[in-house]
């Protein structure tokens, strides 16, 4: 059953985020993906996350698709104008990639090409409207397409970042109106803090996919707690990892417990981000 079918039927979906390489040696990237094939519904391939230049999402998705894996392509507003974005979407659909996630893209000054000129011709919501328009058989200019792409569209939601829950719900409603079919949250380390947001969702049909970030060290946990103001990092969790005899193993256990908790709480799925420790994914997933 495909990712889209499972999502539509309300079955729990598991996504894993795999960074493509900076270069053309794709052996590790493909190898990591193959080891979790069967344990995940789709592999999310980021498009130059953190504005670091590397092999792109479309290429990464194709590499994995050729090995029989389902993927989620990221479409990023930072580097492409509306012509290029639409062209990539058509290319993706024609090559069999039907899951996309619209992202704004981190600003170039955060990455490794800080002299780059950002594009941002469209924003994330405008891009989602374009994806919806393409599905009607017309491009942004209203010109008829020879075959319309039909995507399952994901978006990000930045819970806890704005001033009030009402503002965040308004932002969420706009993304729903623009065609978002599921939402990936920021990293979650405390399910209660996420529940504090979700209890306000009311009768909105929102498929939320919390992000589980693998904790690789105590320093990483502290940095998240200190710098990501909208991500709640419980002190007890930092202490737990710090006091563990095997901190790497403890980080994996934390991720496993979060995944179980997310399942038990009835969320639509989970997205696991190993952040460079892709070789630990099979262990996290019990693959």
């Amino acid at each position: 059953m495909s990712f889209a079918q499972k999502l539509a039927q309300g079955r729990f979906v598991t996504l894993a985020e795999l960074e493509p390489p900076k270069g053309v040696d794709v052996a590790a990237f493909v190898g990591h993906a193959q080891r979790i094939k069967g344990s995940v519904d789709a592999v999310v391939v980021p498009e130059m996350a953190n504005a670091v230049m590397k092999l792109g999402s479309l290429g990464g998705c194709m590499l994995l698709a050729n090995k029989g894996m389902e993927t989620v392509m990221q479409v990023c507003c930072r580097d492409r104008n509306r012509l290029a974005l639409q062209a990539d979407l058509l290319s993706a659909a024609a090559l069999g990639i039907t899951n996309v996630m619209a992202v704004e893209g981190d600003a170039p000054n955060l990455g490794d090409h800080h002299k780059a000129r950002p594009v941002y011709d469209l924003d994330e919501l405008e891009l989602m409207q374009v994806i919806a328009k393409l599905a009607t058989g017309k491009d942004m200019a209203g010109v008829e397409l020879e075959g319309a792409p039909n995507f399952t569209v994901g978006a990000t939601i930045n819970t806890g970042a704005m001033g009030t829950v009402q503002q965040e719900l308004a932002a969420l409603d706009k993304k729903l109106a623009a065609g978002a079919q599921y939402f990936v949250t920021p990293p979650v380390f405390d399910l209660d803090s996420l529940a504090a947001f979700t209890k306000h969702l009311g009768d909105r049909e929102v498929k939320l996919i919390p992000n589980v970030l693998l904790l690789k060290s105590v320093g990483m946990a502290r940095a998240i707690g200190r710098h990501l103001k909208h991500v709640h990092m419980p002190d007890e969790l930092i202490e737990r990892v710090k006091g563990a005899p095997d901190r790497v193993r403890e980080g994996i256990l934390v991720a496993q417990e979060l995944i179980e908790g997310i399942k038990a709480a009835g969320y639509s799925g989970v997205m696991i981000s190993p952040l460079g420790w892709e070789d630990r994914l099979p262990q996290i997933l019990g693959a």
Partner: peptide, 14 residues
Amino acid sequence: AKRVLNGPCGGSTK
């Protein structure tokens, strides 16, 4: 920074 017309983006925090 991103000329977002339907913001904020995911990079906005507090």
